[in-house]
Amino acid sequence: MTDPDFELIDKIIAGEQPLFGELVNRYKSYAFTIALKVLDNRAEAEEAAQDAFVKAYNHLKNFKKDARFSTWLYRIVFNTAISYKRKRKGTFQSIENTVVAYGQEAEGLLERNDKKKFIRQAMNNLNEADKLAINLFYLQEFSLEEVAEITGMQANTVKVRVHRARQRLADELAVILKNEALTL
């Protein structure tokens, strides 16, 4: 597999540490976005993404080059963000028990043409893996296989999660629009 990053990685491993800054610049937005989607807190996401880059640097020698560097890096970012979340909460929220919060607040805030805002809110109620799967899928950067590699899931599982998440969002949207229509 040829990846434009491989040459840069070889130089970094050979001792040219400052070149790692180029990799950071190249991938920081995606790394930060992934961490943010998991943690929902900008400061924490930034710290987690930075830690992930430091981990990636320390384990660069172990990178086997049988996948894209970005996929390998994003998996580290995802796992680091999950560790941060575990440390913060102590417990893990399961998708099976997750109910999209729809209540007075959502009802009050939602305007007819404000679906984007609602979707963002509803997305926050998905679990980490579903949220990340759907985000990566829609950021147009990754195939289902790559999303699977980052999150440590099977490609089929990712597909199911992406489908299920969209269905849930559509269900919620339908309920809200129905309620809105009743109040008119």
Binding site: K28, S29, Y30, A31, T33, E46, Q50, L139
Partner: peptide
């Protein structure tokens, strides 16, 4: 995509 701080 979200953007991190400039000093990232």
């Amino acid at each position: 995509l979200e953007q991190p701080s400039k000093t990232f």
